[in-house]
Design a protein around this nucleic acid. Structure first.
Lengths: 221, 221
DNA sequence: TTGACTTTTCAACGGTTGTTGAATTTACTC
DNA sequence: GAGTAAATTCAACAACCGTTGAAAAGTCAA
C-alpha cells in the first residue's frame, strides 16, 4: 500500500529524470529548457522545480543517479578480479576489463536510459566548464583505486605516465560510449557506433598495449 | 591604403570570431548569447548578425577558420613524412606524429586562440548533436588519407580494427587537447593539463602500441 | 563635393527563459 | 470524516533571447 503510493510518487519524479537525461545528453545543459523537460515527461512545468529545486539541481540529480550504480558495479568488478587473481595480483587486461565491463553490461543495447547517460557523460567529460569538477566529484575516488591496482600490475611505472595513460583511456572510453555516430560516417558503414561489443573487445587490448608500452619497464631495453 | 582599410574591417570581424571562439568553447553553442559575444568583442550587438548572418553562421565560421589551417599543416606533415620514409613507407609512429604534431606546434603554449579552439573541438567531437556531421565535414577527408597511410604500414590489418583504433586515438586526442583540468585534479597536481609536450610525448607511443597490438598480425602468433 | 557602397549603430519586435507564490488536488493518519 | 502534509497545477513575473529594418557613420573613387 505504502508501496503503491511510493511507486506513484516516483513515477513522476523519475519520468522527469528520464526526460531530462535524454534532453541534456542531446542538447547540453543550456540547450534544454524546463518546458522541454516537462513536456517530454508529460508533467506540469513547475513540478521539476518543485522536486529538484532548480534546473542545476535537476542536472546534478540526473548525473548522480546512475553514477552511484556504475560505481558500485565497478567496485564489485575490481574486487572480484582481485580476489580471483594470483599472488601477483590481476593483470593489466583484467583491471581494464573490470573498469569497462560494467558499462557494457548495462548500456550496450536496448537500455535507452543508459545510452542517454553515457551520451551525457561524453559531453560532461570533455567540457571545461563541468568536466573538471563534476567528473572529479563523482568518479575520481574510485578511479584512484583502479590506478592503484594498475600500479601493482606495473610496479616500476612513473606515476605521471600512469595518469596520462588513464587520461587517454578516459578519452577513448567516453567518446566511444557516447555513440556520436562519427565512426559510422568515417568508415562508410564498416563500423557502427552501436556495436558496443565490437568496440569493447578492441578497446581492452588497445589501451592495455598502451599502458604496457609506457609503464612496463621490465621487458624493455 | 586599401591594406589599412582591410585591416580595420578585419579587426572588428575577427574580434567577434575570437570572442565567439572563447565563449563557445567554454559554454557551448546554446550557452552563449549574441550579447555576450558583442560585449566581449566590444562591438555592437547587431554587428555579429550582420557579418555572419546568424548565430549558427557565426558558430560555423569559428569552426571553419582554424580547421583549414590545421588541415593544411597536417597534410604537409603527412606528405613530408611520406617523402622522407624508406621504400616501405613511414612507420606507424611517424604517421601518428604527423597527425599530432601540427596541433602541438600551434597550440601548446601561449596562443590563446588555439587553446580555445581545441577546447571547442573537444566539445563538438563528443557531441551527438554536431559531432557526427560537423567533424565529418571538416576533418574526415584528410583523416581518411592518414588511415590509408596506416594501412600501408600495417598491411594485413582488418579495416574495422583500423577505424576503431583511430576512434580511440580521436577520443584521447580531443580530450587531452581540450585541457579540461581533469588530470590535474585526479593526479593531485602530479600532471598538468597545460603540459602539452608531456602529453604529446606519451600519446604517440601509447596509441602506436595500441595500433600495433590490434592491427599488426605479422609479429603475432 | 557628389555619389555609391560597406560598415556600424540604434531601437524595437515577438518569443522564450527559470522561478515562484498561491491555489488546488491527492494521499494518508488519526 | 477531520486534519495534515506532500504533490501538483495555475498564472504570472522580470529578464533575456535572436533577429531585423531604418538611420547614421565611414570609406573610397571620380
Amino acid at each position: 500500500m505504502a508501496e503503491q503510493e511510493k511507486k506513484r510518487r516516483q513515477t513522476r519524479k523519475e519520468r522527469i529524470l528520464d526526460a531530462a537525461e535524454a534532453l541534456f545528453a542531446r542538447h547540453g545543459f543550456e540547450g534544454v529548457s524546463m518546458r522541454m523537460v516537462a513536456e517530454r515527461a508529460s508533467v506540469d512545468l513547475a513540478l521539476a522545480s518543485y522536486h529538484f529545486g532548480s534546473k542545476q539541481g535537476l542536472f546534478d540529480a540526473v548525473l548522480l543517479r546512475r553514477a552511484e550504480v556504475l560505481n558500485k558495479a565497478r567496485k564489485a568488478a575490481l574486487e572480484e578480479c582481485q580476489r580471483t587473481a594470483g599472488p601477483n595480483g590481476p593483470t593489466v587486461e583484467a583491471i581494464i576489463d573490470a573498469f569497462l565491463n560494467p558499462m557494457l553490461a548495462h548500456g550496450y543495447e536496448d537500455d535507452e536510459g543508459w545510452r542517454h547517460y553515457f551520451e551525457l557523460i561524453g559531453q560532461v567529460n570533455s567540457s571545461t566548464e563541468w568536466g573538471g569538477v563534476l567528473m572529479t566529484r563523482y568518479f575520481d575516488p574510485l578511479v584512484r583505486r583502479f590506478i592503484e591496482a594498475l600500479e601493482k600490475a606495473l610496479p616500476d611505472a612513473d606515476p605521471a605516465d600512469m595518469y596520462w595513460c588513464y587520461h587517454f583511456l578516459s578519452g577513448a572510453l567516453t567518446l566511444t560510449f557516447a555513440r556520436t555516430g562519427r565512426i559510422d560516417h568515417l568508415s562508410n558503414g564498416v563500423c557502427h557506433s552501436d556495436d558496443m561489443v565490437g568496440a569493447y573487445k578492441r578497446m581492452v587490448p588497445f589501451v592495455a598495449a598502451g599502458f604496457r608500452n609506457l609503464c612496463d619497464k621490465s621487458g624493455k631495453s
